[in-house]
Each structure stands twice: as structure tokens, then as C-alpha cells.
């Protein structure tokens, strides 16, 4: 009897499975983006889709970020369920007008008349020696905007399922995917599919300290937690998953349990997601804390090309381990 209930899969393949299922599930869904068709996707996520689904549903677009993101928003107004792929988050700045002035405002500004059910996927993050213009972490920008739902794909399971749920949203959803995770393998449940995109998730239960993170920070935090376990420190890892609107409950429950918090993110430190999480903990859980909240963030510098400098620009597993050892040693 076959008892295998998990599938070993790369993050890229998990994204691909989710995208393919979305296209199969609903004829109104189509994918548009730079090089998604004939090239097969800049990161090979949609490889073979043009042949499978045809060019009406897998649309290569010219290098007109504002134009095609706006067209995606317009297609959503017109009753379709577009998935717009912006090749990388770096280029999404050219479409900010469309995302912020149109996608996020239309429902409220029209008095509830217009829904904008568009899903915008962006490859993001740091770690491939792509230098300053191709290594941005714009999660805080987008998470700042009311009306946008912003999710961050930190695990293979979410890579498989978040898109499917995002397509059920009547409101615009921005999905951050991460280049540095694409080739990483992991196990996901065979029946893995759509899941909630409202809640943060505890990826590892622990009682001594909460590591709150998102995106590429999740696997780094999990690895750090395993290492800390050898020193007798039981760390809980909270994957935020949803960066707007943020799920307070999961965060506060974890703080009440561990009384110590380290926040880890790759985005620049000032005015970041961690700034917001810290504020919420101060507002709602101050008296649960046994120590000041700490954070590890991106160093505030244009991300440089050389590997050693790039690595030094963002939190690494060792930094997480060392920070937590420092935090608990004064108990």
C-alpha cells in the first residue's frame, strides 16, 4: 500500500503547479506578463503553458509595465480574472501609478461600485548577485497601501496554494515570490491546494522566543531554530504570510506565549514591516514582553554585487542564531 502523502518539489515547481491549476480551474483566468509565453517565463515558472493553454490565455506583453499592469486592472473591471506577472518587483515601480492610483482606489472612490479582482505576481528579493537595481524588497511599499492585499510566499506550500486563493479575492492581490527560493526543494502535502490568505502561520512551535518573519526569512528562521534547539532554546517561527492587512491575532498569541520577539526581514530597516509589527506589539502586548523586541533587517544600502557584501546586506541564519543567543543570555 502506497502511504506516501507528500511530494518533493522545488519552489519553482510549486508555483508552476498552482498557476497551472488556476488556469485549468477557470476559463476567465489568464496570465499576462513579460516573457511568460514563448520564453517560458523569466524564471521558467510558466514553461510549456503557451503550448498547453494557447496565446489567448498566456499573453506575452511588451516592456510597458504601466500599460500592461493597467490593462490587467482594466480586464478585471471587464469581468476577467487576470494574473499579471511583473517579471521582477524592481520593474513594478514603473506600474506604481496603476497599482496605487487605480487598483487600490477604485472600489472605495466609486462608493463600492467597482471591484478590481486582479492578481499581480512579482518575483522579488535578494541573493543572486544582481546588484542594486535588481535586488529590491518592496513589500513595505505595497503593504502601506489600503485597498491592496499583499501576500508573501515564504514556503513551498504557499507557493502551491496562495495564487489559487488570491484568485477568489474580489480585491487586488499583490503576490511576492522569491528568486532565491526557486531551486530549493521541500516536501508539500500531496493534496496541497488553496489555503487561507488572511492569517499568519506558526511554522514551528516553540516556547522561548518568537521569530516573526516573512518571505526568504521563513526558511532561514526555521534553520536557525533547529540550530538553537541544540543549545536548548525552543524558538517559535511565525510566518506573517499576509503583509496587508496584517493578522494581529497570530502575532499577539505568540508574544503572549514566548514573551520575547525577534523580527527578521530583508527589506530596509526604517519604515519597514518590522517597524509596523513592533508598533502593534507595543500597542497590544507591551506587558507580555520580558525583553525589548529586537529585529534583523536589510542594511540600508543599495544592495551591492559582490557575494560577501550582498550576504552582509541581509540577515543570515547565523545572525538570527546569534541575536537570539544574546537575547536569552540575560535571563
Amino acid at each position: 500500500m502506497n502511504t506516501k502523502t507528500t511530494l518533493r518539489i522545488t519552489y519553482r515547481e510549486a508555483l508552476k503547479h498552482g498557476l497551472r491549476e488556476a488556469l485549468i480551474n477557470d476559463d476567465m483566468v489568464f496570465l499576462m506578463g513579460e516573457d511568460v509565453g514563448r520564453y517560458g517565463g523569466a524564471f521558467a515558472v510558466s514553461k510549456g503553458f503557451l503550448e498547453e493553454f494557447g496565446e489567448d490565455r498566456i499573453m506575452d506583453v511588451p516592456l510597458s509595465e504601466s500599460g500592461f499592469v493597467g490593462a490587467g486592472i482594466g480586464a478585471a473591471l471587464g469581468g476577467m480574472r487576470p494574473i499579471v506577472e511583473v517579471m521582477t518587483v524592481n520593474f513594478s515601480l514603473l506600474a506604481l501609478d496603476q497599482i496605487i492610483n487605480n487598483a487600490s482606489t477604485l472600489l472605495h472612490m466609486s462608493g463600492g461600485q467597482i471591484n478590481v479582482p486582479v492578481v499581480i505576481r512579482m518575483n522579488s528579493g535578494i541573493g543572486n548577485q544582481l546588484a542594486a537595481q535588481h535586488s529590491h524588497s518592496w513589500e513595505p511599499f505595497y503593504a502601506h497601501v489600503p485597498g491592496l492585499k499583499v501576500v508573501s510566499v515564504g514556503t513551498h506550500e504557499d507557493a502551491r496554494g496562495m495564487l489559487l486563493t488570491a484568485l477568489e479575492s474580489p480585491d487586488p492581490v499583490i503576490i511576492f515570490e522569491y528568486t532565491s527560493l526557486l531551486n530549493m526543494e521541500s516536501e508539500i502535502p500531496l493534496d496541497s491546494g488553496a489555503m487561507d490568505i488572511d492569517k499568519a502561520k506558526v511554522r514551528r512551535e516553540g516556547k522561548d522566543v518568537s521569530i516573526i518573519t516573512y518571505g526568504p526569512g521563513v526558511y532561514k528562521a526555521l534553520a536557525a531554530a533547529e540550530e538553537l534547539n541544540l543549545s536548548g532554546i525552543d524558538a517559535e517561527v511565525v510566518d506573517l504570510r499576509v503583509l496587508n492587512p496584517i493578522d494581529n491575532e497570530t502575532i499577539l498569541t505568540s508574544v503572549a506565549k514566548t514573551h520575547r520577539v525577534l523580527i527578521v526581514e530583508e527589506a530596509w530597516r526604517s519604515v519597514s514591516i518590522s517597524s509596523e509589527i513592533i508598533s502593534r506589539i507595543m500597542e497590544h502586548a507591551f506587558f507580555d514582553l520580558d525583553a525589548p523586541v529586537q529585529r534583523l533587517c536589510g542594511v540600508e544600502v543599495p544592495i551591492p554585487y559582490p557575494k560577501h557584501l550582498e550576504d552582509a546586506s541581509i540577515p543570515q541564519k547565523e545572525d538570527i542564531v546569534n541575536s537570539i543567543l544574546n537575547m536569552v543570555q540575560y535571563d
Binding site: S66, G67, F68, V69, G70, A71, G72, I73, G74, A75, A76, L77, G78, G79, M80, P82, D97, Q98, N101, N102, L106, M109, S110, G111, Q113, I114
Partner: peptide, 28 residues
């Protein structure tokens, strides 16, 4: 805005609604 009349704004960023128009026509 008056969606019943298919009147989609009232868009106040100059040029910002042109891509929307293309997208709506694409949806049609």
C-alpha cells in the same frame, strides 16, 4: 462613476486610465 451607465470615472491622473481602457476592451 456610474457603473449602471458603464461610466468608469472620472480619472484624475492624466493618462492613467488609458491602460484601463485597453484592458476593458481586452476583456470584451
Amino acid at each position: 462613476f456610474d457603473v449602471a451607465k458603464k461610466f468608469y470615472g472620472g480619472n484624475a491622473i492624466v493618462g492613467g486610465h488609458l491602460p484601463l481602457a485597453v484592458g476593458m476592451a481586452l476583456a470584451s
